[in-house]
Simulated assay, not measured.
Amino acid sequence: MKLKLILLAAIALIFAGCAKKAPTFSVAQTWTEKPSKLTIVFTEPLVENEDDLKDDIEEYANNFGEWFKLELKKDYETYIKGAIALDYKKVDAEGMIIETDHVDSTEFKTPKPASMEQGNGYYLAISNVIFTRREDAHANQAYYSSGAAFGANVNPGQNSMAFAGETIVEKGLWIYADYAIYNQSGERVAFGHEEIRSKFAYAMTRSDWEKCVLAFVKRSIARTPILK
């Protein structure tokens, strides 16, 4: 019986590893040119637990949008390194239109600036940005695959994670964000949705907020001609 359970667990792991993940972004194959200018347009991000913000970024607790703008500016300039002229613009909800697009059966919310000056470079729109602190529990696969769950004789030195228990709880600060990029004619050439976590063992700090934004910035342009 124990052997049968172990085999079933192993088969489940194989199928989990082979499962096709839903797409998170799309870049038009026709987009090959590197833009000479990029305007980043964004809406006010939402923080689900404002006490976290007060603890970690106290000086921007009442003006989080300004902190977000400064982080975007720092991070985009880190990756683009002066190769493209950059501009930044914060808009209210009326300044951003939320459309939809899809990759196969996966639907995306695609933000679009209500005002774009055609012929004046590309636009990168960012919206629906949410920061949230979460604790995620998931099955400890080492525990089950080692046989520890079934009373097997497991050497801790070989697989100490097997003795961490049936589940693992991971703490993290998450950022969720939708984005889309438009060319000089106002045509959408890329879009995506990102869910990024900065894990921490005990206490969340300012660096977790910074890591989330940095990772988002990198993903939003990493697969595009912007970094050619």
Results as ranks from 00 to 15, higher is better:
residue 129 V to Y: 04
residue 195 E to D: 07
residue 82 G to L: 05
residue 170 E to F: 01
residue 173 L to G: 04
residue 31 W to A: 11
residue 113 P to V: 05
residue 27 V to K: 01
residue 216 F to C: 14
residue 148 A to M: 02
residue 152 A to N: 07
residue 36 S to E: 14
residue 20 K to R: 14
residue 178 D to V: 01
residue 170 E to W: 00
residue 150 F to W: 12
residue 32 T to V: 10
residue 199 K to P: 10
residue 48 E to R: 11
residue 17 G to F: 04
residue 14 I to D: 09
residue 182 Y to N: 05
residue 141 Q to G: 03
residue 93 A to V: 15
residue 199 K to Y: 01
residue 66 E to D: 07
residue 55 D to M: 14
residue 19 A to E: 11
residue 124 L to A: 10
residue 115 S to G: 00
residue 55 D to K: 15
residue 13 L to G: 12
residue 182 Y to V: 11
residue 77 E to S: 14
residue 151 G to I: 06
residue 86 L to K: 07
residue 12 A to E: 01
residue 61 A to G: 04
residue 176 Y to W: 07
residue 213 V to A: 08
residue 168 I to L: 13
residue 28 A to Y: 03
residue 33 E to S: 14
residue 219 R to V: 04
residue 113 P to K: 10
residue 196 I to C: 03
residue 198 S to A: 15
residue 209 W to L: 10
residue 78 T to I: 03
residue 147 G to L: 05
residue 150 F to L: 12
residue 218 K to M: 11
residue 212 C to P: 03
residue 183 N to E: 03
residue 228 K to P: 05
residue 36 S to M: 11
residue 164 A to S: 15
residue 9 A to V: 10
residue 57 I to F: 13
residue 73 K to G: 00
residue 216 F to P: 07
residue 204 M to Q: 07
residue 222 A to S: 15
residue 170 E to M: 06
residue 16 A to S: 12
residue 198 S to F: 09
residue 107 E to P: 00
residue 36 S to A: 12
residue 223 R to L: 13
residue 30 T to S: 15
residue 45 P to L: 13
residue 178 D to W: 03
residue 97 I to H: 08
residue 31 W to H: 10
residue 161 M to S: 07
residue 73 K to T: 09
residue 207 S to A: 12
residue 220 S to M: 06
residue 14 I to N: 02
residue 183 N to R: 04
residue 127 S to N: 04
